[in-house]
Computed example of a mutant assay.
Amino acid sequence: MSLEEIFAFHRQDVGPVRYVEPIGGWVVTRYADVARVLTEHAVFSSDELRYSAQPVPHGSNPLLRSLSATDPPRHHALRRIVSQVFTPRAVSSLEPLVEAHVGALLAAAGPTFDLVGEVAGPLPVRTIAGLLGVEPVRWPDFVRWTEDITSFFGAFTADETRRTAFHAAVGEMRACFRAEIEQPTGVIATLARSGLTADEVLDFCALLLVNGHETTTTLLVNAVLCLADRPKPADLRPAVEEVLRYLPPTGGTDRFVTRPTTLGGQELQPGQRVVAMITAANRDPDVFADPHTFDPDRTANPHLSFGRGVHFCLGAHLARMQVRVALAALLDRPWRITGVDTRRSPVGVDVRKVALATNRRC
């Protein structure tokens, strides 16, 4: 798939709320409707295990018990505790470490390298491992655990190979993080002493590992795709925000109706699934001027890529910082894209490889 085809695939127009039989839920695309779904947690819950009227074959996934799948009031209590990991001061203190990781990864890359496998994938793994105090020997396991956990959902749970890999990954991951709870210092041990149960600490670590890894990796890859063949932006901050709007790391997110309600003129019933299409909402012409054009200098940019309301992404600042640091280093050296390997997914396009050619000049 070419860059033009990738961009075209994400060109989604907004429309009325509609029920889509193959996915068994209501698809929401208008900015105002998506924002409402993301904000009104009392009506549109993140707790699939509690509210879904349909069986949840991936119910053993630890992400379904984590902060992102918990509603207030318990959500507020959990978030107050774990948010200490992501204060602006804490994130800023990690920037020198991120710069060192980026430098080491680029130094190890050859004149032609795979952005996904050699830079964008390893970077958040190293950052999260450093944040949690996990030794480098575990870094490859972080990647494998993420892949095995995220590939186990819906109909894929019937695949015996995926099921075996999933349970092995969850077991290994929990054992690794449980050992960290017993340490006298470190983020995980601190959280365990801050009022969280051991299971809540482990579920938060799983959320941080899986979502933090995938979001940052995809955002960095998408930024490189969007900025290819363009002059280096004078300010990377609005450029990263425009990547988040134009080619977001997450195409959509699920919510579950808790009580009868009306959305976009449609009557929704308790237990029904609602798919909030962030990709489409980010291109709503009622909110964004010239929505299908990538503008790295766009200023008014209230995109929904990190969510809204109580579930606004806790690690948004960390993801932005990592991508900004990596982009600055990449854009300081001439490079060009020589190949892209993609795979279709239910809500977008997964970019599996991006071949870059560079002259390694620093």
Rank of each mutant, 00 (worst) to 15 (best):
D229E: 15
P238K: 06
A179Q: 13
R230Q: 10
L207D: 06
E214P: 05
T157N: 02
T157E: 03
D203S: 04
A206I: 13
E242S: 07
C205A: 09
K232G: 03
A206C: 15
C176I: 00
R163T: 05
V221H: 01
V240F: 13
Q183Y: 11
E172Y: 06
F177L: 15
P184A: 11
A189D: 11
G186P: 12
R230D: 10
V201Q: 13
A165N: 08
L196D: 14
A175G: 08
D235W: 01
L236A: 11
K232Q: 14
T185N: 14
E214C: 02
T218W: 00
M173E: 14
D159G: 07
I181S: 09
A175E: 15
E160G: 05
L236E: 04
L191E: 04
A179S: 14
R174F: 11
H213M: 09
G212I: 04
C176K: 01
S194T: 09
E182A: 15
I181L: 15
R237Y: 11
E172R: 11
S194L: 08
E200C: 03
K232A: 15
V210A: 01
R162K: 15
P233C: 01
F166G: 05
A206Q: 09
V221S: 00
D199N: 14
T216V: 06
A223K: 04
V170H: 04
T161R: 10
F204L: 06
V210P: 00
N222S: 03
V221D: 05
D229G: 08
E180C: 14
R178Y: 11
G186D: 12
A228H: 10
E241K: 04
L209N: 01
R230T: 03
D235R: 08
E180G: 03
H167G: 12
P231M: 11
G195M: 05
L191G: 02
P184T: 05
L207M: 06
A206Y: 02
G212Q: 05
A168M: 07
C226Q: 10
T218M: 08
C226W: 05
H167W: 10
A168C: 14
I188G: 08
D229V: 08
R178E: 15
A155K: 00
F204G: 13
T185I: 10
F166C: 01
V240K: 12
E214A: 02
H213K: 02
R163Y: 02
F177A: 00
P238T: 02
F177H: 07
V170G: 09
T164D: 09
G171E: 10
E241N: 12
T157W: 03
L225M: 07
N222H: 13
G195E: 01
C205S: 07
R237Q: 13
E241R: 07
Y246R: 08
E241D: 15
E242F: 11
A155S: 14
C176P: 00
R162D: 03
A198K: 03
V170I: 05
A158S: 12
I188P: 06
L225I: 13
L236K: 06
I188Q: 10
E241P: 06
E242W: 04
